[in-house]
Design a protein around this nucleic acid. Structure first.
Lengths: 335, 335
DNA sequence: GATTGTAGGTTAAGCGCTTAATTTAACTAG
DNA sequence: CTAGTTAAATTAAGCGCTTAACCTACAATC
């Protein structure tokens, strides 16, 4: 059986309060007693129960991380960064993959509350404003890589998706592509929306247009659906010479579609991805992509959350990081 | 403030015991009372605290998942499968990346105990037998994708790594490669060891040998180190015509090394990976690799663990799944 | 009509810990 | 020598829940 505070107290011949005090380094205890108690704790291999401590008002030192899919490399990289920084600051991470499904997200949220996590890092869409507002009343929340769909003041660590889309467009324009298309996630994904907006606006400013028919969105299995939608795009009359994909997974789907149609990348069609995950570095051809500073984002999200739940004033409401275009082999001057 | 069982009891004009009974569907309560109480719970948006329930001997419905690195696609795929099945059965997952460091693993384990997780799924090496034995006395443990380094009877869900290595060797032999090399993880990783064993044995049976100098191991950053070690292998006198890599990440490192040396894959050197992660499908050339049934493994590990911690007799001590060779473009007949 | 059952509750202890309030002992000052 | 301080430790209440044991009507049995 695991030793409890009572066991330690009995062995050391003191009250449990004394033991509690040395655990927490509070209260008044003579150095002598303290050492005795520490020894007993050591001997019994005693570890205070986080559960019991939490019940008396202390924290659980656990935070919930909501992402669309932990097996998507972008999010697993975020998750790793979050875990590391969390660990560094003494917190564990419960992971929740929502598949961008509101139903799943809400179920997980309610569960996290029941489990008394100290705070939440949300990297998935929160379409339900009501729910979010209510949530924030009961627990500190930080958004990461996704915008909250509300005008509420929220801690947010995000990349400037608009600029990201704009970078992609500018690159295409420099390469003389004006007949372009976009492959995105479904419209409820805020980051996709912003990327498209930035992409389109830059295009428009250069005197070009982006017809709705040139934008396709994917619901679920990004790889599979991405390929399907890319096929559709690439088989449109007046085939686009360049496609901007709102993440690397979609870009890979597009790569596959191109291959299936016998189109060479970048010769026949240029492709830009987003996220700069490990995937972008290994594809054939390697992927030109808009990089997000994943590690930094994860770290900042954690710091921001912990700062909040330790009651310090929030340093910065919104941290907007700069995306960066990484040029590799999947883009070239239009023939 | 969050409503407690007391609030519900007061509002409903009953004792907290009555409320507890309807929460747990136990005891004797008239259908009438039950409905009344349910309504009050609904109205107050009451959710029982898992923490408090856990303190009275119930479970936390949380399990710890230890893997070397959640951002390694193989493990993030495992993690996703574990999460899904866990969620399905009512459990949440705390994730722990150990980087194959004993120190990290042990720190995490002790933490998981303090947090009273119900069980542990371990997908990382456990070199410290003592610690493992002690651990198993206090909490149910299931190994996944890694062998426990002990002769203890342990629930284990694993792929037959020996056969996996053997499949790779056989494939090389069929392609007339006999001057082969191996790129592995460090020797403490049981799966790497078994894969090498299977690989070598098959080679030996065919009358060939595998010199120690032809085996290189990586410690940490598999991608970076993998490339370095692969460079070494590929620059040895009498350069190997084929390299077996103990996972896809290492194979990618090797791919990069080959490219850097101006060697064509598979023309100049054939490469086999292991895991069949998403990476293997996107590389250039796509990777011949030994596939593990990740999804199934994750699912079975969870089921096995839950069965154990719900007190049912273990169905099967050791589940050994069959690996499968997926032939893609990175291997070809020796020139 | 006394006995036995039983459905439908309630009481109260306890899970392992924290913490405010209190007690005790030792010491200082006047 | 006594009142007043202070340091060191204890007492006890409480966190939100579970559960065994107990109580109370009321109906059924002979």
């Amino acid at each position: 059986m695991k030793a409890t505070i009572y066991d330690v107290a009995r062995e050391a011949g003191v009250s449990i309060a004394a033991v509690s005090q040395v655990i927490n380094g509070k209260g008044k205890i003579s150095e002598e007693r303290r050492q005795e108690i520490l020894q007993v704790m050591e001997r019994l291999n005693y570890r205070p129960s986080v559960i019991a401590a939490a019940l008396t008002g202390k924290k659980t030192y656990t935070i919930g991380l909501l992402v669309p899919d932990i097996s998507n490399p972008f999010f697993s990289e975020i998750a790793r960064a979050v875990e590391d920084q969390g660990d560094h600051r003494g917190y564990s991470i419960i992971m929740c993959s929502t598949d961008n499904k509101m139903e799943r997200a809400e179920r997980y949220l309610s569960l996290m509350l029941q489990k008394s996590v100290d705070g939440l890092i949300i990297g998935t869409g929160m379409e339900n404003k009501e729910a979010l507002i209510k949530l924030m009343k009961s627990i500190p929340v930080v958004m990461v890589a996704r915008e909250a769909e509300t005008n509420l003041a929220m801690q947010t660590v995000i990349v400037d998706d608009f600029v990201g889309g704009s970078l992609a467009a500018r690159h295409f324009l420099e390469l003389k592509h004006s007949r372009v298309a976009v492959l995105a996630e479904k419209a409820t994904v805020s980051s996709s929306r912003e990327r498209i907006r930035g992409f389109r606006e830059t295009l428009v400013q250069a005197g070009h247009a982006l017809a709705e028919s040139r934008i396709k969105a994917c619901e679920d299995d990004l790889l599979k659906e991405g390929k399907e939608k890319a096929l559709e795009l690439l088989q449109q009359p007046d085939r686009p010479s360049a496609i901007f994909c709102c993440n690397d997974l979609l870009a890979i789907g597009t790569l596959r579609a191109a291959k299936e149609l016998g189109l060479r990348v970048p010769h026949d069609v240029s492709i830009i991805g987003f996220d700069n995950t490990i995937l972008a570095t290994v594809t054939d051809p390697t992927l030109t992509t808009v990089a997000q500073p994943t590690e930094l984002m994860g770290k900042m999200a954690v710091d921001s959350l912990i700062q909040k739940l330790e009651g310090q004033p929030p340093a910065e409401e919104r941290v907007v990081l700069r995306p960066e275009l990484i040029i590799r082999q999947s883009t070239a001057v239009k023939e």
